[in-house]
Design a protein around this nucleic acid. Structure first.
Lengths: 234, 234
DNA sequence: GAGTGGTCTAGACCACGAC
DNA sequence: TCGTGGTCTAGACCACTCG
């Protein structure tokens, strides 16, 4: 009995191929046997080999071309996947207790930069929320959010004191498109006060615009407390 | 004749389904018809519908479960893919002319933080390169890199003055695993001098460790000039 | 138990593109 | 030109899980 699950079918073939890639049996830049040959070797249909190799190609290991055959990509992965968590989950995953504090709530016309990010042509009034997220009562991130309430049915039932806008929207409002911008900024005096950090500290910022069918829903800018890092494997 | 390509086969079915998702005909949280029904509707084999729906599920639109059927995911995508470009390509994509300047090259024992990131137990000497990347002769990013030359065959043929380590390694050295850490830091005096920015500016940093079969290859830390942003859609 | 998606097969035809 | 991967089909069996 093996501790790891032993996949059967196309996953078994994918794993066998992956082993050859990792071990160097199929070296970078090299041409690997064609589908028919591998199907014969593994004793399965060509479609099954196709499924396995397609999976490896999508993962960035192989480069497949008609007529030219399948080649091992010299440099496997150039993409990293960033998961965008609900902040409460992020905090709790770190073993801390999550809380949040609503700093301000108002209806106002957003600044031009926000209007541009959301593609709003006219100067409409949106709901503006500023929230502080805390981990074990220590400031974790500062959230500046604009919501087009016309695009969010059921917003009346939303109590920003009880549930953070971050979590409420994620749970209830579907979106189809989004844009994410990562940057860094210096902590201004007010931000430093909110985050409990020295003025001039470097903060990792994350701006996110989301849309439903090209209709702007919300724009949010998160300023993380100093030292915060985003990590991903690839 | 249509200006946009009209895919046939499973992609056509995927697109038709996507249109229903985007239009709301298949609403978030809702159950969609099963594969057999859709196959009948589209006049194709069930496997073809399966291929199309699997694609949408991988993209995060659908949640498919045996027996339970296929459901529209309420909140489509929580993942963003970050592409990690060769810096020269990144600069040239911005319409600028790329150049680089080697600031220092030496063999030394890396600091503990770098050893830890690479999982090096003992204090071996690695190749240490510091490079400045420029866009139209303006500083773009500062690169601090450590390379385990034993893990990089052919390193003797590498001329760091001619080609940046970034590009040389990407083109020649395969890797299997990697870790990426994004953060922000304040520009120290020396860094500010290199990047031509004020001391105390906020810099977006990107640390990357790469491995080949659990063997450490290189660790690199990029400090981008102020205002630099990483963008991705999802 | 029974309905659903997951997968496999064997064969076929097609589209691309290196030669 | 013609080998290669891309895809479709029709049918079959399996695995999961809801009721």
């Amino acid at each position: 009995m093996r501790s790891d699950a032993a996949p059967a079918g196309w996953q078994a073939i994918r794993d066998a191929a992956l082993e050859r890639l990792r071990s160097g049996a199929w070296a970078p830049g090299e041409l690997i046997p064609n589908e028919a040959e591998l199907a014969a070797e593994f004793g399965c249909a060509r479609a099954t080999v196709n499924r396995a190799l397609r999976d490896l190609a999508e993962a960035g290991w192989l480069d497949r071309r008609r007529r030219a055959g399948t080649r091992v990509v010299p440099h496997p992965v150039r993409k990293a996947t960033l998961t965008i968590p609900v902040i409460r989950h992020e905090v709790e995953a770190g073993g801390a207790r999550y809380s949040h504090r609503l700093l301000s709530i108002a209806r106002a016309v957003p600044p031009a930069a926000v209007r541009a990010a959301l593609g709003l042509p006219c100067a409409r009034r949106l709901l503006h929320l500023v929230t502080l997220h805390l981990a074990d009562a220590v400031p974790h991130a500062h959230e500046d959010r604009w919501i087009d309430t016309d695009a969010v049915p059921g917003i009346d039932g939303f109590d920003p004191e009880a549930v953070s806008a971050n979590e409420w929207l994620v749970g209830r409002v579907p979106y189809t498109e989004g844009r994410l911008v990562l940057g860094a900024e210096v902590a201004a005096p007010e931000m430093a006060r909110h985050l409990g950090c020295p003025e001039g500290a470097a903060l990792l910022t994350l701006e996110r615009s989301t849309f439903l069918h090209d209709r702007a829903i919300t724009w949010v800018r998160l300023c993380h407390a100093p030292g915060h890092r985003l990590t991903t494997s690839f």
